[in-house]
Write a protein that binds this DNA or RNA. Structure first.
Lengths: 233, 233
DNA sequence: TAGTGGTCTAGACCACTAT
DNA sequence: TAGTGGTCTAGACCACTAA
């Protein structure tokens, strides 16, 4: 009943997708256990496990010990967004990258930022505003707050040479964070920097980054009109 | 030199992250091979493999046969977006979902849509416009083109009862697609339906979905102002 | 061509949880 | 408590690719 199919985990994954799509394994139903499938496909249980684990990870199957594996009724597809440093994002589009450090200073953050990064007492933070350019045209406007107590190495770094964006990725390589995507009408400052009109719809990415349990930085990136973030499901 | 750490793949993954962050394994450098690490951690090579494979998948390591495993210099972080059907998205926010089928008809698609889904000859497609509501307030405005030749089962379905959004997920469960996220100023029609002013910044999701090598549907979703798509890195 | 990661196996034990 | 998936092992062979 099998054997024309590769018995690799990818082959089994493909066959499982086929059975889901063709309703051989209908939405919400239990599918056979790993042992049974391993017998059917003539392979080891670990191979079946790998295939089904990937599908569970993709949101198509739901697996629970003792309960078994079930086809998800309303699959929540997982799209992957690649979050690269802006220089690479620009260069990846075949354009020349440049940035302009508009402001570098220290100040008490606004309440919204302080709340986002869970600060008590509103200490002074570094405040950096940067304009990123592609082929000398405005690409994105960055407004960032950074807690120097969490990354003391930042002191003495010449942020006019290396963008803060890039410095952070290099120096806090593995970190966790929240990301929120939204749209906003350009205010006067943003419009001026991005070379557009007040009220233009801007694609906005807000991100808070944590190192351990301390917030490193909160950033708001507003992209020039026309920006599209693409991905694949 | 180890052994206080769990020798599970997750423990090894955590230890690898620590070494990357602390520059024990510096950016761009080769790290020891799987065999060597397995010895160090006192576990099987498959366990090391699992840990490093996950990190490669997350964009932190780069692995190549014969060349070995290397710490990525400028990691491109992968954020996951959950693409759920809109009903679940609304209900997940604790609001009541409802939708309003504004238009259901057939027409020749505009050139942009025809190009996106790779149509030759611009045949007539189904055109559906839907307003999604949360607690009776506009949530998102959907403009969709659908090729009935690819999903003939759509004929006879009462799309006033089940939203096309939901029907597709249920009936074409596993499909591939492109997604583009952007921002746009509301036009008159969108503003009217979403209960906002002309020019308001709208968060826009455009998606093309394929079944095999045939395009099933192209959809544009414009969310009411205030919408934020959140995720985690 | 040799070295490294990719995968598979057969078996074992464990962790969770439905009953 | 029993059944299912989660993980680990020790070993093997394979696939890719740098040298």
């Amino acid at each position: 009943m099998t054997d024309l199919r590769t018995r690799s985990w990818q082959g089994i994954r493909a066959e499982a997708i086929r059975r889901i799509n063709e309703r051989i394994w209908p939405p919400g139903e239990l599918i056979p256990g790993e042992v049974e499938l391993a017998e059917e496909f003539g392979c080891a249980r670990a191979t079946v496990n790998r295939a089904l684990r990937e599908l569970a990870d993709e949101g198509l199957l739901e697996r629970r010990r003792k309960a078994g594996t079930r086809v998800v009724r309303d699959p929540v597809r997982k799209a992957r967004l690649d979050i690269a440093i802006i220089r690479l994002e620009v260069e990846g589009r075949g354009m020349a990258y440049r940035f302009d450090l508009l402001e570098e200073g220290r100040a008490k953050p606004p309440a919204g930022v302080a709340a986002a990064i869970g600060l008590a007492g509103r200490p002074e933070l570094m405040h950096l505003r940067t304009l990123h350019l592609a082929d000398d045209r405005p690409f994105a406007y960055e407004d960032r707050w950074l807690d120097p107590r969490v990354v003391p190495e930042i002191d003495g770094v010449d942020l006019g040479t290396v963008s803060i964006n890039e410095w952070l990725v290099r120096n806090v390589p593995y970190s966790y964070g929240d990301i929120a995507l939204s749209a906003a009408n350009a205010d006067e400052q943003e419009a001026a920097h991005l070379g557009t009109g007040v009220g233009a719809a801007l694609f906005v990415v807000e991100r808070t980054t944590w190192k351990g349990d301390a917030a490193v930085t909160a950033v708001r990136l507003a992209y020039a009109p026309g920006y599209r973030l693409k991905t694949v499901v």
